[in-house]
Design a protein around this nucleic acid. Structure first.
Length: 277
DNA sequence: TTGTGTTTTATTGCCTCC
DNA sequence: GGAGGCAATAAAACACAA
């Protein structure tokens, strides 16, 4: 494509002035030109004074105001950029010779290419960060939901615990929270017995492995439990739900006590023995 | 054809390094 | 102080819709 052609007449104009084919001068330099004085301060397009008189150069390179590089030139420049994105003077000159370009053009191309590469890199980093942020946000939201769910569970359990405290007070005259750990174990034990008795599973062939096992010692029967090794109580000492007039089919403590953990037992050991007399 | 947005080529001014 | 890099920018070239 041949648009307004340029040629340069070094004998009649300053080095920053270029001419269109119809002799109308234009000024090289990106920004608006206000005067020749300003113009003369600008860096020369040509890398050396020799360039100014290189007619072949004008013929080949400057017939158009701004000519795009050919696809072959771009291809070779891209390949060169891939191997090394910085340009040593020697490589610059070699490339320029090979491509039929001015070394300055090669340098400019590399500079612009580095800028594009950097922009791409920034865009990629932005995308990565954004997806990472989205993922974190999603995780955070699900954690918030889980947190809310757990809070409501805690509230529900606290409510139940308060109800149990009322029942415990009725049995022992003490608040549940203030009971020593050994007593908690014993209450837990009693609840299991209560559950067993109320469900009629004593003597059944179907054995609840988690529940205290009934042992007949002749004069009296005992429950043995691995879970509550120190709690051995006679059956007649067990408080049943009929006694407290509860209309609930299970003990207030069942949920809590059946969840008795090793931690609790360790806690008891730390505190020392408490004998339930 | 023309208006508009994008890409490419090139310049300028500033900065750093040797 | 000169060479080279970079950010910002201009302007030509190009793409494309209306």
């Amino acid at each position: 494509m041949e648009s307004g052609r340029l040629f340069f007449n070094p004998s009649t104009c300053n080095s920053n002035m270029l001419f269109l084919g119809n002799t109308e001068p234009i000024f090289r330099g990106a920004r608006t030109m206000h005067s020749m004085e300003e113009n003369t301060k600008r860096r020369l397009f040509f890398s050396s004074p020799e360039d100014l008189y290189d007619e072949e150069y004008y013929d080949e390179q400057l017939r158009e105001k701004k000519r795009r590089l050919t696809s072959e030139q771009v291809y070779l420049l891209e390949k060169s950029f891939e191997s090394e994105n910085k340009l040593e003077p020697e490589r610059k000159n070699q490339l320029a010779k090979k491509l039929g370009l001015q070394p300055r053009q090669v340098a400019v191309w590399f500079q612009n290419r580095r800028a594009r590469w950097k922009t791409k890199l920034l865009e990629r980093d932005y995308d990565l960060l954004k997806s990472s942020l989205d993922s974190l946000q999603s995780n955070y939201d699900s954690i918030l939901k889980e947190n809310a769910k757990l809070k409501s569970e805690v509230a529900s359990l606290t409510e139940k615990l308060q109800a149990k405290d009322v029942a415990t007070e009725a049995i022992t005259g003490q608040k549940y929270e203030s009971l020593p750990a050994e007593m908690v174990s014993a209450l837990q034990f009693s609840v299991k017995v209560e559950d067993r008795l109320s469900t009629g599973s004593v003597g059944s062939t179907v054995v609840d492995e988690d529940a205290p096992q009934l042992v007949n010692r002749g004069d009296s029967s005992y429950f043995l439990s691995d879970e509550y090794p120190r709690c051995i109580g006679p059956i007649n000492g067990v408080h049943s739900e009929e006694d407290d007039g509860s209309d609930d089919s299970h003990s207030y403590f069942s949920n809590v006590f059946t969840e008795a953990t090793e931690q609790e037992q360790q806690h008891e050991e730390t505190l020392g023995w408490w004998v339930w007399s």
